[in-house]
Design a protein around this nucleic acid. Sequence first.
DNA 1: CTGAAAGCGCTAACAG
DNA 2: CTGTTAGCGCTTTCAG
Lengths: 332, 332
Amino acid sequence: MPRDRPTMIDVAADAGVSLKTVSRVINNVPTVDPALVERVYASIEKLGFRRNALAASLRAGSTDTIGLLTADLSNAFYTQVAAAVSQVAITHGYQVIMASSEEEAELERRLALDLCQRRVGGLIVVPSGPDQSYLAAEAHMGTPIVFLDRPGSAIDADAVLLDNRGGAADGVRALLAAGHTRVAMLFDDLAIFTMAERLAGVREAFADAGVTLDERLLDTGSHSPDPARHALASMLASATPPTAVFCANNRATVGAVQAIVAAGAEVEVVGFDDFEFSALLPFEVGIVAYDTAGLGTVAAETLFTRMAGDTAPTAQRLVPTRLERRGGLRVA
Amino acid sequence: MPRDRPTMIDVAADAGVSLKTVSRVINNVPTVDPALVERVYASIEKLGFRRNALAASLRAGSTDTIGLLTADLSNAFYTQVAAAVSQVAITHGYQVIMASSEEEAELERRLALDLCQRRVGGLIVVPSGPDQSYLAAEAHMGTPIVFLDRPGSAIDADAVLLDNRGGAADGVRALLAAGHTRVAMLFDDLAIFTMAERLAGVREAFADAGVTLDERLLDTGSHSPDPARHALASMLASATPPTAVFCANNRATVGAVQAIVAAGAEVEVVGFDDFEFSALLPFEVGIVAYDTAGLGTVAAETLFTRMAGDTAPTAQRLVPTRLERRGGLRVA
DNA sequence: CTGAAAGCGCTAACAG
DNA sequence: CTGTTAGCGCTTTCAG
């Protein structure tokens, strides 16, 4: 039988003080008679009073809450980002409302606006849809927006992105420097911002090296390891197989490695994205790694700075990547 | 210059109707003159009105929000659970406020109570602390609580748990059935509920088979792959090395496999917890797998059932495990 | 079918 | 240092 929650009025009555005194005690206003403070706390304890944050927020206008709208919460990448955002929020006394657009533009819109209706103090968004202009009104009315991982369209807001081009270019340059000219490219759908950027970086590196990218070695179906594995397997079985492969995400890397092992081939691998157990990779591969949590931290800090009133021009921040060696199980 | 958000009053004034009519339109009350509906919508559009969910909730008492308090948001396991919870919530028109206790009892308490103050409609908690009695008052006042992964203490509430004992027992039985008697055990801290349960399952299996568990082969420091690797490496280097190993979590499994490969030994492996790229494991191992997302789904559904008023006695639900084969890269 | 008035639980003004 | 009075933006009586 859910009994009613006690309110400040109940506490005030029980402690024999006014409503406002209770409010002051709860908000740690120093100028309250210690004796009253004592009595109020006693009543709070006795009645099991818990301040209704809703009512407080309604007055204040803000909610000590930020919204995080990712593209796919089941993806470990966004999850790590979320953890980092959550940690920053905690240090500010904020909580995080998390949602996932599942890469659907309409759901993104609905959830983002819903978050605004809940009066989050700010919003971190991984844009899925082609156009975030629906947020313009909210941004104008004082809800700061920070885009994460992909820039927003049709709206001026801060963005925190990976150095996709630079990372991909570095990775490919390493392969080209090793003398490879037939380099397979395993990408996910190029409609995804990060994929397009990484491909642009790849093309830059090829152009700089004066090597021609064989478009037949470019596959864009690596959303998971299996298609990547199949794509590389068939390239390896061709008359002029690649001697190296650049994988634009970690699923592609895993699929590629499986194909290489199955074929017993000797192929050099560089892949974008580190992953939790990359130490298990059976031979050494180059990994374009970066600080995933840092991405979330920077985004959250940018957001809190805006929420604190910073009105500097919006900026794009690039999180750097670095090429590392991973795997080589036998060396462990 | 954040201009003020328009309120229903502004909309009413603009549309030349009463406040209440606007409210009705927004809440899709069918008995409103279509002409007025039209006018109201026009004004909403024109002013960029967005209903303040806070104010609505204050009246209603609830917030169309549930709280999810995990033990460690940076752990992929909780992350997958969170994604599943979030999906269920969406179908109910709810959003999820996510927090992480970082395995600290005091932080757990603070965050859980904070969530209650925000008037979440219900709470899913992965208990870190030894005692959740601080939630009793909230539960009594109508905030349903569901414990996830670990049961709560000192409070009667639903819990959704893995079949830790059964899964561990199955895994060990497979090793014993294959004739192994010297089985290494790589565990994390036994103070963790799931670890203690899994060890209990292991002991059951040993007892059933009439085999004695050599306590010197039991290690409890496998919080990450490295200590597991070291632990197994030194066991393998001993005079009477184990011929099989049971790993109580996926980090232990990865560390064990690294040690085995490095030692060039022939050791059979069974590990608890599947992981994203377990296909990369260099040889076949047994994995005690389960439906991680399902755990979150069941917890969320239990919670929504309670929120809908179900007052059946609280229950513990066990999510089943199954022993599968993973890895064996060469066979891919 | 529509509107005026009251109030959700709290905090910000302003007195006392 | 304490209390009274409004009122945050909305929904809910209850009349019209």
